[in-house]
Amino acid sequence: MTQKPLLSLDSSGLGCESGRFHVDPWRPVDQAVITHGHADHARSGSKAYFCAEGSGDILRQRLSGDFQLTEVPYRKKFKLGKTWVSFHPAGHVLGSAQVRVEGLQSVWVVSGDYKRNADPTCEGFEEVPCDVFISEATFAMPVYHWKEGIEVVKDLQRWWSAEPNHPSILFCYAFGKAQRVLAELSKLTDRTVYLHGAIETLMPAYRNRNVSFVPNQTVSSVERGHAFAGDLILAPPSAHRSAWMKRFKNPQTAFASGWMQIRGARRRRGYERGFVLSDHADWSGLVRSILASQAKTVYLTHGQTEVLSRFLMEEHGLDVKPLKTHFGDEQIEEQFAESVS
């Protein structure tokens, strides 16, 4: 008799029957275990939410309706149904977690989104041994290879300071990327950086966790006459080519994202500069993490799953399967960030 897997997909998402919960469900359920606060992972409508400590403020701010929220420290096991669940740092954004589920027969880990590069705004990724590992695969191509964040931000600072006469606008995701840039910048300068409203809404959650940033204030709080000449402004990608841009005369623009690794991707988005800075794991980060999990079975979700599966099967003899989820749609997060600003 084959055993029912501990976690499997149903119409609401990735569900655990014996634990009576779902991980990052895309439809309302009774109990939702949330890996992190990005809008494609944390959706409204469920009755009870569980998240890692550090993610609570973000979820309370972003989820609508009535719900119960339980924040659990990293590595602390808590019981759901017949399973033991714990959160482990994923290194993706503030409060992001891998979800470890211990059933009677096996241990599964759902990675959520994760990265292996250092990030001063969140705890670093922890390798968690398991039988089955469900990994993201957003940048699962060997051409994706990240430099350390501080190196990229040094390049960014050079780009910014080479333009003393006009504003420099850096587009980046409002939750996670923007704060990572601000935190790295604090090691390099104490000049004030200006923020789009969508980014500012996330800042209190970080301040509560004592993350240190370069001095910053919102664009809207600056008096009218200020020309922003030589200033750095951070904004979400949705602000590019919007009316909000009118305030800045002849700005130079750049986009910070892993997608900027490919020239074509940068050119078609119409940014002058691309800084390769991602909160996801690069190819070697994915391979390293999957091997370190010691899992015999690996599921891959959102991204270039086919290429990574073949590589893991042929080169490392793992059993790899694709898992079709609703994650990885960055547009959802972007629209969300825009709607709350």
């Binding site: 191509m141 060997p142 290879h145 690794q261 490919i262 020239r263």
Partner: peptide, 26 residues
């Protein structure tokens, strides 16, 4: 380096010179 992986990478990037330089960087 598996040949098929190079081909897949090329398919993703769309330019041999760029693909190879990115792989060299990695």
């Amino acid at each position: 380096f598996p040949e098929w992986l190079l081909e897949e990478s090329y398919g993703h990037v769309g330019d041999t010179g760029e693909t190879v330089s990115l792989l060299l960087a990695s």
